[in-house]
Design a binder for these strands. Sequence first.
DNA 1: GTTCCGCATGAATCGATAG
DNA 2: ACTATCGATTCATGCGGAA
Lengths: 310, 310
Amino acid sequence: MPKKRKSKPALKIGEPVAVYSSKHKSLPKNTIICGDALNTLQTFPDDSINLIVTSPPYADRREKTYGGIAPEKYVEWFLPITNELKRVLRLDGSFVLNIKEKAENGERHTYVLELILEMRKQGWLWTEEYVWHKRNSYPGKWPNRFRDAWERCIHFTKNKKFAMYQESVMVPVGNWAQKRLSKLSDTDKRRDESKTKSGFGKNISNWLNREMVYPTNVLHLATESSNTKHSAAYPISLPIWFIRLFTKEGDIVLDPFIGSGTTAIACKELQRDYIGIDILKEYCELAEARLKKKYQPTLLDIKNESEYQD
Amino acid sequence: MPKKRKSKPALKIGEPVAVYSSKHKSLPKNTIICGDALNTLQTFPDDSINLIVTSPPYADRREKTYGGIAPEKYVEWFLPITNELKRVLRLDGSFVLNIKEKAENGERHTYVLELILEMRKQGWLWTEEYVWHKRNSYPGKWPNRFRDAWERCIHFTKNKKFAMYQESVMVPVGNWAQKRLSKLSDTDKRRDESKTKSGFGKNISNWLNREMVYPTNVLHLATESSNTKHSAAYPISLPIWFIRLFTKEGDIVLDPFIGSGTTAIACKELQRDYIGIDILKEYCELAEARLKKKYQPTLLDIKNESEYQD
DNA sequence: GTTCCGCATGAATCGATAG
DNA sequence: ACTATCGATTCATGCGGAA
C-alpha cells in the first residue's frame, strides 16, 4: 500500500519535524517495501521504531545495481534520510550505521566524518563507534596501503538513555577458538557438522558451560563473500548482534536499505518484527524469497557469533 | 635558541622545500628534549624527519600529569603543532597519530574527526586509518557502552608518494594458529612458552619457515608491556610496527610527546635515530633512564610482534 | 569416510591507457 | 589536464573432486 508520493520541501538541517506527525500513518510490520527510502519513511509514524540497522550503498560501490553515489554528494544525499530516520525512531531507540569510506587517489575520503558531524547537528548523539574487524578482507596490493580489514558500525541515539540489553551478547571467556581447534582438527570436520546439527549442539553446550563476559566494541566477523548462495557483504551475524543488543522480542527493527534481506532474516530468527525498504525490485524479491525459506545457520554464522578473544 | 617565528606561505605539494631550510637550525639526533612541543619544533630545520609517530596527551590519558586539554580546545591546541610537524617532515615521510576520542556525557567527542578535517586544510593527506585492536582492553562496565578495545592510528602524509617498506612487517599466513595447533598439542605449546626464551625461539623459527603475507590495516596488540611497571597505554610494539613500515635503518624518527620514552627505545632497538620531546621533566628523566638500560624484549612484546590472525 | 588439493570469488585500489 | 575504463595485484574461505 504505497501512498501517493508527495514531494515535501527539503527540511533544513536541525529543523524539528515531529510536528508533522500524522495519526493516519501506519507501520507496515514484517514487510519488504519496494521504494525510495526517503519517500517511504515519510509514510511512517513518529517515534515507532526500536532499532534501525543498515548498511547503505557505499559511495561509488555497487554501481551496477544502485547506480552508485558520488563521494562528494554522499552526505547531501544521506542527510534527508537520516532526518526521517530520527523522526521515526523511538526515544529509547538506536541507529546502527555500517559504513566505510573508500580510498581514492591515495587518500581516504572524508564523507563519513562529515556525515557524523552533520548528523549531530540534526540532533543525533554519536554514542559509540564499533569496529567490525573483517577477518577475510578483500585481497590486493598497493604501494601506499594494506588491505582494508575493518568497517565502522556507528551507533547513534536520540537520547543519552536508551535500551541496551548487554547480557544478550555476552561471550564465553577465553580463547575458545584455539581450544576448539585443538580438539576438532579441520575444516572438513566442520563441514560434516553443518550437515547434522548434533555435532554442533555439542559444541554449543561446551560454550554454555563457560564463564561469560561482556564483549568489547570490536567485533570479529567474516564476510560471506564466497557463500555461493547469495553474496552479501553484510554477514547476518552483524545485524544479529546489534538486534540482540538493542532490542527485545516483539520490538520493531527497520532497515531502509535492506538489499538481499539479511536484516529481516535476522529479525525473523530472533522474533523481532522487521520493516525493510529497498529501491530495487530484484532485491525486494530476493529478500522475500529468502524470508520464505527456513533459515539454516551456517557454520560461519555460528563461528561469527562468538567474539574472538585472545 | 628559539628563533623568532616567521610565518611562511604554505607549500604546495611537490614543491621543493629544501631551499627554505635554514642552515642555522640543527637536528639534535638521539636526544630527549625537555620542552614545549611547538617551540622546540620551531628550532628544527625543514624537511628533515622521516617519520613522526606519537600518542599525544589525550590518547595517553595523561590528563592528570599534563594538566589536561579541554576537548573543545583540543583541535585549536593541536593545529599549530601539526603545522610545524608538517614543516619538519620530509616529503616522503609519514606521520602516525595514535589517538582515540573520549566518551563524555554519553557521547563520543568529535575532536578527532575535526582534527582530521582541519589537518587536511593544512595540506596533510589523510592517507589511511589503521585500527589498533587492544586485545586486553581496560576493564569496566557502563550502561550505554562496552569496553573500548580499539584506537585509531591515523596515517598522514605530505605526498601521495611516500616511503613504505611493506615487506618488513609481513606476517605468517593467516591460518598459522590452526595449523600449528593441529600439530602441536596444547600442553606442548604451553610448556614451550613458559620456558621463556628458548621455547620462543623455536616457535619463531617455525614461523620463519611459513609462507608470509602482507598484514591488513588492523593491528592486534596487547596494551600492557610488562617492561614498565605501570601498564603503558602505548605498547612498544606499536611504534615498532610503524617504524619498520615507514623507515629504514639510519632514518630519523620524531615523537613530540615522548612520555616515558617508548618510541625512542623502539628506535634504538631498530637502529633508527630518534628525537623525543616532552614538556615534563620527570618524563624526560624517565625516558633517559630507560634508554640507558639494555632493552629486554619480553614475552608479550614478542607475541605482539606477530600479528594475530584469527 | 578421511585428508588433501585446486579453484572460484569477493563493499578494493592503483596505475596505465584511451578519449 | 581531466575523466572513464581496464588489468594487475592479493588472500581467506567454502566448495567439490581426487587420492
